[in-house]
Nucleic acid binder design. Structure first.
Lengths: 298, 298
DNA sequence: AAAAATGTCGGATAATGTCGGATTTTATAA
DNA sequence: TTATAAAATCCGACATTATCCGACATTTTT
């Protein structure tokens, strides 16, 4: 199942994330710290479940649900909040949420509820598929609920905090492209070739393609640069942070990250620009995404 | 659906009853005002759902569930109580209750939850029936994507932060090659032979092979050098880092790593190049990869 | 309209292949 | 065991490219 988390409290988001991942219940394909910031990403990533806080500044949970529904979102909501007021809870249930979980967050409770709700969804989907097949004698055995490579990649990019960047689309598409390739070599082709291939999907004249592939190159570089900064900032505060600990040494030249962390800690703004190794980043992402895709849980 | 209500409060029972009947969700086949008084009737009427209060004199909700399960009751529980204590709620969920609803009782909430749980139950039943019939036809089309030795090696190299380097491909292929060999000696053959064997998979003239095997040698050396630098940098930042602790002493001459760490910490850029022991690295990797492959993760 | 983000391009930089020779390990005999 | 030669392994240096990056132009956002 694909989850999206909306909560203004970082700690809550992290706990939920941890619970979902630990329980092997699915992937987090995005998160947001407010209703307003949640709308666009939810509509574009179309998660199966949205875990949403009721009390949030500006746009509260119920209003957010209204907005999303109005714009055609068909996913399911699970509300998580410390509100005790039965009126509000009732109101939430009227918006057709799946369930209301009371804060403080309790691991077993959340896991149990998520498991039951997602099971219900799966069952429903299977039955719908079956009914359709029976009615039309069709052989559509395509499981739409399966997560794609793109989901896996998105979730990784989200962890690095760059899912919203323009270059992320390029990256996701590239990995998808590479993965759909026949050759099972884990070595990715030269970056130049990759860029050109991607560019040729939208542009058609030779010159256009060259330009676009140059643009792609820069977009990706800038996106990765942002990821480095994000991780370095995380690590500067707490180098046992799980995202930092995992991604920083694997996806980047850790020496670069380290010197970045230093300048951050010492608040120097000068900073010799760090070296950005696009090839390494894509290579690791490619192998790891495929691995996670083939052997989902951990 | 057939419901049974257990609650020491008459008013609560009446409300629940009313909600179920009004919502046309099923029939009430009995009620009881305590856990003790509920046991016999529940076992004899075998309801689909038991709505049960957590806090009751003598036999509380959880104990009642235990008793019933012990005596073979297979129905489902929905707990309804005003308890706020998350520990108790968690405990209840561990007893495999369907959901926990907080008092005071809210019509919409109860209806929504009951509807969803009973729907889930119905779906499950239908699906089980269908599956049973289908199983007669189809043998399982399960495609097992085995975890290969390559995956194991990749993950180790990823831990060292060198999955992105060109030489990693060589290393992975080499270990795969060695492992598929008949002789299960723990001792790996001379490096030169290994390189030549690998080279001869892509090149075919004698001279070409020599060149390629030289290239492979350099790629691997450089890759391992990067791994050393990565780990040393990791260790310099945080010597309790698990990857550092594990890999640094096993795969490398630890003395080399330590002096590397020193130059990193003191920011000396001169640095006498550390000695790189390719043989040791491959040897350890070979043994460990095979070990992990045969006896996967704990 | 200013500021930020993105596109464009050429030159700088670092990665890689190639090769000869230095250094270490291994084998063998004293 | 120790000495020594041969073999294996390791390393530096250079040429060639892929990759990277600064700087300015253009577009988009505020």
């Amino acid at each position: 199942m694909r989850y999206f988390i909306v909560d203004d409290d970082v700690a809550s988001r992290r706990m939920l994330k941890q619970i979902i991942l630990d329980g092997d219940m699915g992937v987090i394909i995005g998160e947001a710290d407010s209703g307003v910031n949640a709308l666009d990403p939810i509509l574009s990533t179309d998660p199966d479940f949205v875990l949403i806080d009721l009390l949030m500044p500006k746009l509260d949970g119920i209003e957010t649900i209204d907005q999303l529904r109005k714009q055609g979102f068909r996913g399911h909501f699970i509300m998580i909040s410390q509100v005790e007021n039965k009126e509000m809870i009732g109101e939430a249930y009227e918006k057709d949420i799946e369930f209301f979980i009371h804060k403080p967050i309790n691991r077993i409770e959340v896991q149990s509820v998520l498991k039951k709700t997602s099971e219900r969804l799966l069952l429903k989907k299977s039955l719908l598929t079956i009914r359709k097949s029976i009615l039309h004698f069709e052989e559509e055995t395509k499981e739409e609920t399966h997560r794609t490579i793109k989901d896996v990649v998105s979730s990784i990019l989200n962890d690095m905090g760059i899912l919203g960047e323009v270059g992320s689309d390029d990256i996701v598409t590239i990995i998808d492209l590479l993965s759909s390739n026949e050759e099972k070599s884990m070595q990715i082709p030269p970056l130049k070739d990759i860029y050109e291939k991607l560019a040729s999907q939208t542009k058609f004249s030779g010159a256009e393609i060259m330009k676009e592939s140059k643009a792609i190159e820069q977009r990706i570089r800038r996106t990765i640069s942002i990821a480095m900064n994000n991780l370095a900032t995380l690590g500067a505060v707490d180098y046992t942070n799980p995202e930092f600990e995992y991604y920083a040494p694997r996806y980047f030249e850790f020496a670069e990250i380290r010197s970045l962390m230093k300048t951050i800690q010492e608040n120097e703004m000068d900073s010799k620009k760090p070296k950005i190794n696009v090839k390494k980043f894509l290579q690791v992402l490619y192998v790891e995404a495929n691995e996670k895709f083939k052997h989902p849980p951990k």
